[in-house]
Design a protein around this nucleic acid. Structure first.
Lengths: 213, 213
DNA sequence: CCGGATCCAATTCGATACTG
DNA sequence: CAGTATCGAATTGGATCCGG
């Protein structure tokens, strides 16, 4: 772990999590919970196995990750974030919110996992009608499914299928992400191939969070 | 600029600002305003000149930095953040707030600049008495001076000397930072060598911001 | 299959020296 | 002051191999 050698909390933070891949490894465990080595490798297309090994050991050494030997019948080691690791959520939210400005272009070589899209409305959007009735949106992109649930002023999302959703959205990752974060109007998203079936008014409740915390 | 190749806004953000030194270069311009090449190099102890050149060009290419040829008598080029660059403030705040947990240890080899300390109360603390009278704190560490001003619920800080401050704090960077961010009690800081002269009650108005935005 | 370890090529970084 | 040029050191990426 190379250090910047500066007595500054930003530099200190980057000393710990500034290396390549580190924050993306944290993202995986933060949004998915305890993961096996192979799960992490799958969720991080392009990472070399030895580098993942190295990073996990570094994260363990600085106390951001805890490894747990799962008992039989699983009989494998699980990697999970400690409280200090979980506290990085605000950093990932700020980075992801800022990075939304670069989501306008989809590159052909880009990999995609539904969990990256699913977290977007939970982190970057807000329900403008907190006292409104609960609502469920099912999202489909590249054949994968996710569920967005609104209720009590909170937006929660997870990978998987919904039973009896109020609205179903299907399209490219970009089109779906656009409407769920408010950077695309529904009309514009439809021009990009989005198909929406159900109670479209639910979308009016979703607005982007204001940038400055 | 190596890319992670993931359609995820966190990964996209790291594609742009995840390289070594990049966020620290942004920190300099964000907290200090437009800077010359040499100013940046001075504020970033340890960076190689060629790497600074490379990073500045990359930042310019992605539209986060604008270079401006200052007219005579300055006759030099100034580097400043664009609006997209300024929007990284929330990322640096989140990182710096998280990184405070690592400020407990001062390493002998660490470099220190007053501007790194001065930004701390502005970013990581809050005035719990917004309707209280304006107050001025002068801070001295390693021979450098800074001014912290409270008033109207805001905390503002800058490098330099104060005229007629309500309180003067002098000590090691760690001791001063500790009291200004609320991670050290005044008594504990005094044990670490802090000298405080003036209206100590002003310190009671300063509390750490809550972690989650 | 899972969780690595090992090896090697490609890339990036850091230190120093040098220039207009 | 504001960078280039150069070169060795360190890091990263990719492939392969291995014990349970």
């Amino acid at each position: 772990m190379r250090t910047y050698g500066q007595y500054c909390s930003v530099a200190r933070a980057l000393d710990v999590v500034g290396d390549r891949w580190t924050l993306l490894i944290v993202r995986e465990m933060l949004t998915q919970g305890p993961r096996r080595f192979t799960d992490l490798k799958t969720g991080l297309p392009g990472i070399a196995a030895n580098l993942l090994t190295t990073r996990l050991r570094e994260l363990e050494d600085v106390g951001l990750v805890r490894r747990e030997e799962a008992p039989p019948p699983i009989a494998t080691t699980l990697y999970q974030l400690t409280d200090d690791g979980l506290a990085l959520e605000s950093v990932l939210k700020a980075l992801g919110l800022w990075g939304l400005r670069y989501m306008g272009e989809e590159r052909d070589e880009d990999s995609f996992h539904m969990q990256w899209l699913a977290i977007a409305p939970e982190w970057f959007s807000t329900d403008t009608d907190p006292s409104g009735p609960p609502a469920t949106i099912e999202v489909i992109a590249t054949g994968e499914h996710a569920v967005i649930e609104l209720g009590g002023g909170r937006i929660h999302s997870r990978v998987g299928r919904a039973t009896d959703p109020d609205l179903v959205l299907e399209g490219t990752p970009r089109a779906v992400l656009g409407v769920l974060t408010g950077v695309l109007t529904l009309d514009r998203a439809k021009e990009l191939g989005l198909v929406a079936n159900g109670r479209l008014d639910v979308l009016d409740r979703i607005k982007p969070v204001t940038s400055t915390p």
